[in-house]
């Protein structure tokens, strides 16, 4: 593979299901050795994109290459170079962890001895050595996910696809998976990761593509994207609904941006660039204006806001 060749390349992928355009001109370039996040809401086309790239699904049109091999015409070669960890822990529940890894190793055409040795290495690496002999039915959610990851890494593939690897996991198990992904990335594996969570992309990804309606609508480092998306927000919950117009004007002046109000929740919300300075200015200003706040909170933009922002940008660009 020449050095310039991207680890993952998708060009103008299209895939229709009836009237639904699951992929509608999807482009993606992932540099070797990086972690790339594919961020989007349910139904945006993330899973379809990963399934095409992992050779599970044929695109209607467009091309995709993994480690330099076309996923349709050279699917066999591509499969030797990619690992897939899907949304379910795709392991055999009735086998033990070790038996699972040995079986998948044999199906990767390792010799019996190599499959056995590799299973041992991976169990060790994912801290499953102690429980490797137990049937998977007795595993916790986090352990299953780790076994699932291990199964995707049997050939130490240069490219690994992770489809929503932490959906449905508790925070502890989620951290375990994040650790495992970080260690993989450190060892040089290219990782394409889909997620619904901005935080997850922020934690793990070198670059992020935001996908909506089957196409990438923004791409950049997490920091670049957050700057484009407007920065953090301050939310103020008022004691009295009557203060809403006054508080709204006050926040707008401090932040230098238009405030949004939600009368039902007695909420005023405003985006801020310099979060600490704005907060420091806001609290005394509220007090001197005689406005009582029940809660003042600094927070990151939610994914909803990211999408509202980006899709609004899109519409403007079209108009």
């Amino acid at each position: 593979m020449p050095a310039e060749e991207p680890a993952v390349l998708a060009e103008n992928l299209r895939k229709r299901y009836g009237d639904t355009r699951a992929l509608d001109g999807f482009d993606l370039t992932v540099a070797p050795g990086t972690v790339h996040g594919l961020l989007g809401p349910n139904g945006a086309g993330k899973t379809t994109a990963v399934r095409v790239l992992a050779t599970l699904l044929r695109p209607d049109s467009g091309t995709a290459r993994v480690a330099g091999f076309d996923v349709v015409r050279q699917a066999g070669q591509a499969r030797y170079r990619l690992g897939l960890v899907g949304q379910h822990a795709a392991v055999d529940e009735l086998l033990s962890g070790r038996q699972n890894l040995e079986m998948f190793g044999r199906l990767y055409h390792l010799s019996a001895a190599d499959a056995r040795r590799r299973a041992g290495e991976l169990l060790e690496r994912f801290r499953l050595a102690g429980t490797g002999g137990k049937p998977v039915t007795q595993y916790s959610g986090g352990m299953r996910r780790r076994l699932d990851l291990a199964a995707g890494l049997i050939l130490a593939p240069p490219v690994l696809f992770l489809d929503e690897p932490t959906t449905g996991l508790d925070p502890r198990a989620r951290n375990e998976v994040w650790d495992a992904v970080r260690r993989l990335a450190a060892s040089g594996t290219t990782v394409l990761l889909t997620t619904q969570y901005l935080e997850e992309a922020d934690q793990l990804a070198d670059r992020v593509s935001v996908i909506d309606h089957g196409r990438a609508i923004a791409e950049g480092t997490p920091d670049e994207l957050k700057h484009r998306l407007g920065a953090d927000r301050i939310d103020v919950v008022l004691h009295s609904l009557a203060d809403l117009p006054a508080a709204s004007a006050l926040l707008a002046r401090i932040a230098g941006a238009e405030a949004e109000t939600d009368p039902d929740r007695r909420l005023v919300s405003v985006p801020v660039r310099d979060r600490m300075a704005a907060l420091g200015e806001l609290v005394p200003a509220l007090a001197s204006a005689g406005i009582t706040a029940e809660d003042v909170a600094l927070r990151r933009p939610t994914l909803d806001e990211v999408f509202l922002h980006l899709t609004a940008e899109q519409k403007e660009a079209v108009a």
């Binding site: 499969r79 990619l82 199906l107």
Partner: peptide
């Protein structure tokens, strides 16, 4: 099929008829 094991098999370089 439900657990995704079928998909994993399909992503492996094994013989599909197997």
């Amino acid at each position: 099929a439900q657990r995704g094991v079928t998909d994993r098999f399909r992503s492996l370089p094994m013989a599909p008829s197997a």
